[in-house]
């Protein structure tokens, strides 16, 4: 019966009720079915909400980024890229993927992020490259390019970070095996993360290459007036 909360979440997301409501209802239902009192459940909400304040740390970047945007940061990022002939959406995102993943593999996971890098720099550059070639972008294409920019940040981070020995994930796994009395070694875990990390780079770069091709097919015909 404790799985009622899981069911609520899945159904809620599928029929697209506001996720904040879905999650709250699921939490309340799960707690009640586990025979907790309402007071205990609300207390848990408060406690966990406070402990997880670190998830809100992206807010710290908003004043700088907002201010710089007011003074034309995004336009400048687009402008710089439009002067580089070889720049395409896919190549810019691939370059960012490589930097993000390599930095994460070296333990520099903070070199990136959606609020501080993707919104003000990476996404405008990726859009700027497409605009320089094909003129004004249709909204759905613009959305697609932005979503790709966000995805690159995630994929680079996830598949890079486990290659670094001292990252949280490796330490968590080490701790788990220690607790269960199973021998394990952080260095070997990090080493065995390399094949997937390389695969991620190859697979996603290839998809970004295909993104370029599909942009070309779609926009070259639609706008015709492209400079390329």
């Amino acid at each position: 019966m404790v799985l009622i909360g899981v069911a609520i979440v899945i159904v809620g997301f599928i029929i697209r009720i506001n996720p904040l409501l879905v999650v709250t209802l699921s939490g309340l239902a799960t707690g009640l079915f586990a025979h907790q009192s309402l007071y205990e459940i609300i207390e848990q909400f408060g406690k966990a909400f406070t402990t997880n304040r670190y998830m809100a740390v992206f807010i710290a970047t908003l004043p700088v980024i907002g201010l710089l945007e007011r003074f034309g940061l995004r336009e400048q990022a687009e402008h710089v890229v439009s002067n580089i002939k070889a720049a395409t959406t896919g190549r810019i995102l691939t370059a960012y993927l490589v930097i993000r993943e390599a930095a994460a593999a070296a333990g520099l996971t903070s070199l990136g992020g959606h609020a501080q890098m993707v919104r003000p720099l990476v996404a405008p550059m990726a859009e700027g490259a497409a605009e320089a070639k094909y003129g004004t972008l249709p909204d759905r294409v613009r959305d697609d390019i932005r979503a790709h920019a966000a995805a690159v940040d995630n994929i680079g981070l996830f598949f890079g970070e486990d290659v670094f020995i001292a990252i949280g994930a490796i330490l968590l796994m080490k701790g788990f095996f220690d607790q269960n009395g199973i021998p394990s070694d952080p260095l070997h875990m990090a080493l065995w993360a390399i094949p997937t990390a390389v695969a991620a780079l190859i697979v996603h770069s290839f998809r970004l290459h295909r993104l370029d091709r599909s942009l070309h097919k779609l926009l070259h015909r639609e706008n015709g007036k492209g400079r390329a």
Binding site: G5, L20, F49, A56
Partner: peptide
């Protein structure tokens, strides 16, 4: 994100 982390905690204590 904070609410989901909260839900995770509740799931864990409830034995999901």
């Amino acid at each position: 994100p904070q609410m989901l982390a909260t839900l995770g905690t509740i799931f864990t204590t409830a034995g999901v």
